[in-house]
Design a protein around this nucleic acid. Structure first.
Lengths: 309, 309
DNA sequence: TGGGGACATAAGCTGGGCTTATGGGGAGTG
DNA sequence: CACTCCCCATAAGCCCAGCTTATGTCCCCA
């Protein structure tokens, strides 16, 4: 009926939200897969059976694929349904990590465990730890404050935080620490960039003289880079999140310097290529820290033990 | 104003969709981070500036956190905004993989590249490859058919598919192949399960005599396990997607046997524990396959080269 | 043959998100 | 100093997706 839909072509970029079912629908699909029935899934999510039925059906319409085989004694996934469900699982998993992190940002007062962490750790490692902690101790309210090493130290020493994580080269005075992981900053470019075809390591001087896509001044990553290059890093553009830096690098805007934790997936899929560099030390330790003498106990100890994964 | 909000407590499980902004909002946040302005982000997503403004604001209300600093010359992320944006990036990334896969399931006709793949590969590796392919060749329409090895072979030999991927122990007759990766099935249990504390490898006989959480009969994983155990695997329960099996194992229902590709994240976070097993061969190759003599060319060759990542 | 479990359909409500229209606050320019 | 441009915010109104309640159909089993 009506007029022909104007399909905006949408070549690759462009809003994905219209083509992917929303999180509620994906969650519902997972529940159906697990419980084997639309009605049971609906009960679990606190909606009615017709709501679940209609939601699954509209998801099938949107994707253009049959997802479940309905029968008078339950519903089972089709083959493609099983596939879609597994893909959905990864979206929902990422959303759970998001939720765990966001909840920690919100709950300021009366938290049982107050964590202060530097950016790289808060971005890439903490959400997973929070999920694991929640699995073991569902009632532990955690609050999270992200900042640079100095801010983390200050919170710990003033008693406003119970456990900290820093990624610098040095441990702030007054704190004990334990190394929990190692990190390297790496130079990455889009596959089309000339540096992607270099066979020889890039000299530090050339890195220092080339404009780079960077986080803004004050970020831990930026500080390590500036120190390593002798305060010389030249910004091509300064962006306000690691994700934005990655997006710019992938789009070919120029070389970027990022934690290898940040670009694992991009490297695996060849969306970014690592450029070897010589003559500059870009390694750093990731450490848990706490006020000297106050060994972590209770929930803090619990969290610390998760970081040995 | 109004009454006190009834907070449903919602301890850990329970629908996440109400606490996490929807994909459109997350995408908008990423655009704001990248472009530095609400209006520019709105234009990129094809909505109006007031819509973007209101959406970001309601996201801030939902999360209880300020995300962007607005000024008369643009908007920049706050510190916590940068953190949230990075977390959002991973959700959106998973959604893009979902979309790439779903699109391949849908476009049946006139696809330039028709792929047939077995489940494990379609679940865990293909979406990434499709994203990479789309980045390089945005106009290559790909169709995907998932099935067992026999079905993959049949499609290839009948000319209904250009390139296949199988995960069995043997290569179907009439096909050439190249090993692209190795996979191992592993036994996993929740950390609380007695097997999690075993020091000695589990004898194959004990594995065979213990009821397990399994994919249903006919799945490639199940076949490999049945063969390895001599047709003896006893199901505790049979579920219709890998995700459902993982969820059951994590919840402590019993031991599960899964590809290590499927449980990398769960192992890292200690949500599942690997149980060593002795006396049974659970390794298998992942292979690209094509009709004997018809070396992949064009888009198929392109895709094949991505699999060497 | 009656009951129960599971899914489908229909009708009506509500709210979130979009649009258009309008206003205010810096910054650069003659 | 006014003019203009580029931000962002607010207000009013529309529309559709998704929910609920009520009811129908199918199949299995006692």
């Amino acid at each position: 009926m009506g007029s022909v839909e104007e399909q905006p072509a949408d070549g690759g970029t462009g809003s994905i939200a219209h083509r992917v079912p929303d999180l509620g629908a994906l969650e519902l699909l997972l529940a159906v897969a697990r419980l084997g029935s639309l009605g049971a899934a609906a009960r679990e999510l606190g909606i009615t059976q017709p709501a679940a039925s209609s939601r699954i059906r509209s998801m099938e319409r949107q994707l253009g694929v049959a997802l479940v085989d309905r029968s008078p004694r339950g519903s089972r996934l089709t083959d493609t349904g099983a596939l879609v469900t597994d893909w959905a699982g990864r979206v929902v998993e990422a959303a759970r990590a998001f939720d765990a992190g966001a909840q920690a940002l919100r709950v300021r007062r009366d938290s049982r465990l107050r964590v202060a962490a530097s950016m790289t750790i808060a971005e890439y490692l903490l959400p997973g730890w929070l999920l694991a902690l929640r699995a073991g101790r569902p009632d532990t309210a955690v609050s999270l404050l992200a900042g640079n090493s100095a801010a983390v130290a200050e919170r710990l020493l003033s008693g406003e935080a119970d456990l900290g994580f820093v990624e610098g080269l040095t441990v702030p005075p007054g704190l004990d620490s334990a190394v929990i992981a190692h990190d390297h900053l790496i130079v990455v470019v889009a596959p089309a960039h000339p540096w992607a075809r270099r066979r020889r390591p890039l000299p530090a001087a050339e890195l220092a003289s080339t404009p780079l896509i960077l986080r803004e001044k004050g970020s831990g990553t930026r500080q390590v880079l500036d120190t390593a290059l002798g305060g010389l890093a030249r910004p091509l553009i300064e962006l306000s999140s690691t994700t934005a830096v990655k997006a710019a690098a992938v789009s070919g805007a120029g070389p970027a310097v990022l934690s290898e934790l940040a670009v694992g997936e991009e490297l695996g899929l060849r969306r970014l290529v690592k450029v070897p560099v010589e003559g500059v030390a870009l390694a750093r330790d990731l450490r848990a820290v706490w006020p000297t003498g106050h060994r972590p106990a209770g929930p803090a100890r619990e969290l610390l033990s998760l970081t040995r994964g």
